[in-house]
Amino acid sequence: MANDPIHQFQISKIVPIEIGGIDLSFTNASLFMTATVACAAGFLYFASSARSLIPGRAQSVAEMSYQFIANMLREGAGSHGMKFFPLVFSLFMFVLTANLLGMFPYFFTVTSQIIVTFALALLVVGTVIVYGFYKHGLGFLQLFVPSGVPGALLPLVVVIEVISFLSRPISLSVRLFANMLAGHITLKVFAGFVSSLGALGALGIGGAILPLAMTVALTGLEFLVAFLQAYVFAVLTCMYLNDAVHPGGH
């Protein structure tokens, strides 16, 4: 069992709950969602509780995250997009903390579940659609009609734009999900090589050095991916929100 690279994604019930025939159990995934929220919120809460003029280390990190996302959103969606700041900040912190928590051995990676990333992506795209229609009415559909396209090509371009818009939640969710999944599987496979080769005796221990080095390198890479995917998720969220704020801005 220890060597099965898929086992780490297995969901097990901790508190079985079933309402109306639907399984709503509190699982290890739920536990780590709770842990993610507790870690992220707890860190930000205690880091900013001193409110000191000259920030300490923790407060610096909290402020840097804040300004990192604030600048990203301002550049991506302009100053009108700043009303979405709590959403983008929450998404970034949630995904980042979930990814980083997943790097602990034996911890469950919340973002390696397609339904979680898909729900977050739908939240983004849903926000774009709802706010776009609320703010611009049917003018939001301008989004699919880029200006300066010759009349003959326009239907084709509109179809392409619609398809690209509809594929956004899929690409947004699959990118994060697949990165976390593939990274954790690779890490587990290489780590599994180490233990199975190590069991073969002296020659095997010598041969295990290479996968061990790979595991160390992959761990570093996975930390990078954990941050990078959170960043990419936030950047794309900013870009999509820009469409809601400025639908004619193509």
């Binding site: 399984d23 709503l24 969602m33 709770t34 993610t36 579940q113 339904i115 729900a119």
Partner: peptide, 12 residues
């Protein structure tokens, strides 16, 4: 597990 995950994701 989708229903459970969605519920707890929405809550958390």
């Amino acid at each position: 597990h989708f229903a459970s995950q969605l519920l707890w994701l929405v809550i958390t």
